[in-house]
Design a protein around this nucleic acid. Structure first.
Length: 359
RNA sequence: GUCAGGGUGGCAGAGUGGUCAAACGCACGAGUCUGUAAAACUCGCGCCCGAAAGGGCUACGGGGGUUCGAAUCCCUCCCCUGGCA
């Protein structure tokens, strides 16, 4: 694996595509890596197709980094909630895809499939602590998360041997436990005992008051050994990423920039040029909603502090037009812009290190 | 000219005596979005007062009438669409 300059943000290409874009678009935004999803890709296109391409990278023609998520988030979003609830036992998670089609995901299967994806970084299957879990419920998810983490690690080592890999992927344990700091601590300690390349801040990182839970974020960063990478799963808003990098985090992934773009919310820096961006100022960016009436006659670019495909070539008025007529290229241009916003953010963070110890 | 069918909120289109400020949809406006069941979802959408519950006013082409009560029934005028002259 090539050397990574941390911190990094990997946008979510869950199904081996960053929605509304293609791999050359992503490359153009200076995005170093992406996240793909084990569960979704094992359903579609499935392992046989992935094998034919010798991994997801060739499948989607992407030569940057790839982290694969285990399906742990889907334990929450599809098995614990949603219209077709699944079932969770110590053995694994059963997802009901249609009324007569189900799939069992186990920690071992998740890891095995991630090897077939040939990703650079892998995440263990975890039992997502629901946002409103009480202490006992949270404790159970921690116990299962640790149990699964151990089995994942064993399967990981087995795969490395079987596949005779000299360049091993990185493996991340995921810390669960909800808002209970003592559970989080126990979970992190047990994961460290098992031994990983890094720890992930899992579960739902937003408190009930809508604020990002920095207490948990800090706890994990503080417990992790010096040589560990720290990964904020599903994190987050730009200011949350800045905050976590200050705590020592290295890796992030999130759907926000891409989803927000498709929903007509762009991020723009409060700056007149790229060098004047100050990510340490409290409100260093704002939202820009292209379709608002006031933008239709605006011939300026969306942002002066951006060098993306959209900002270099098209005006606010043109983008407003594309959104209004629901032209699909609006989604592409907006997505490209938001991805570039995030990659600029990470470039700024890398050039003004806070306490990044990982080389 | 005549026969038939119509004229409903920004558009489209239900409603055909009270439960109608008027369905559904579109458009428009506001908001949400954090390891993607998401190019999605929520809310608002005549005017005025109220934090809200709620209240007042105006409105279903124009005018007039019947009725306790009309977008809905009757008369009349105007306009549109189609068949026949």
């Amino acid at each position: 694996m090539k050397k990574i300059n941390y911190p990094v943000f990997f946008p979510d290409a869950t199904r081996a595509v960053l929605k509304a874009t293609d791999s050359t678009d992503i490359k153009g935004t200076n995005t170093p890596g992406i996240l793909v999803n084990t569960l979704h890709l094992s359903i579609n296109p499935g392992g046989r197709i992935i094998d034919k391409y010798q991994g997801v990278r060739k499948f989607m023609n992407w030569d940057g980094f790839v982290i694969s998520d285990s399906g742990g988030f889907q334990v929450m979003s599809m098995a614990k909630s949603g219209p077709r609830k699944g079932t969770i036992t110590d053995r694994g998670v059963t997802f009901y895809l249609t009324n007569n089609k189900k799939i069992l995901l186990t920690p071992e299967k998740s890891i095995e499939f991630q090897f077939r994806l040939r990703t650079d970084m892998m995440v263990v299957l975890d039992d997502f602590t629901p946002p409103k879990a009480n202490f006992n419920e949270a404790r159970e998810t921690v116990e299962r998360t640790v149990l699964w983490a151990k089995r994942s690690k064993d399967e990981f080592e087995k795969q490395c041997v079987e596949r005779k890999l000299k360049d091993k992927p990185l493996l991340f344990g995921v810390v669960q436990g909800g808002e209970y700091l003592d559970l989080r601590r126990i979970c992190a300690e047990k994961l460290i005992e098992i031994g990983f390349d890094g720890l992930g801040y899992g579960g739902w990182p937003i408190s009930e008051n809508g604020k990002f839970n920095y207490d948990v974020a800090k706890l994990i960063a503080d417990i992790a050994p010096k040589n560990y990478l720290i990964y904020g799963l599903g994190v987050g808003k730009p200011e949350e990423i800045v905050g976590c990098v200050q705590l020592g985090y290295h890796i992030f992934d999130c759907v926000l920039p891409t989803r927000d773009a498709r929903h007509g919310r762009l991020y723009i820096y409060e700056a007149t040029s790229m060098d004047k961006i100050n990510i340490r100022s409290p409100k260093f960016y704002k939202y820009y909603v292209p379709s608002k009436q006031e933008h239709f006659g605006d011939t300026r670019p969306v942002s002066q502090a951006c060098d993306c495909l959209l900002c270099k070539n098209y005006s606010r008025g043109y983008l407003a037009h594309l959104f209004r007529i629901k032209e699909i290229s609006a989604l592409r241009l907006a997505t490209i812009h938001n991805l570039r916003f995030y990659s600029i953010l990470m470039e700024k963070l890398a050039s003004t290190p806070a306490k990044i110890t990982q080389a």
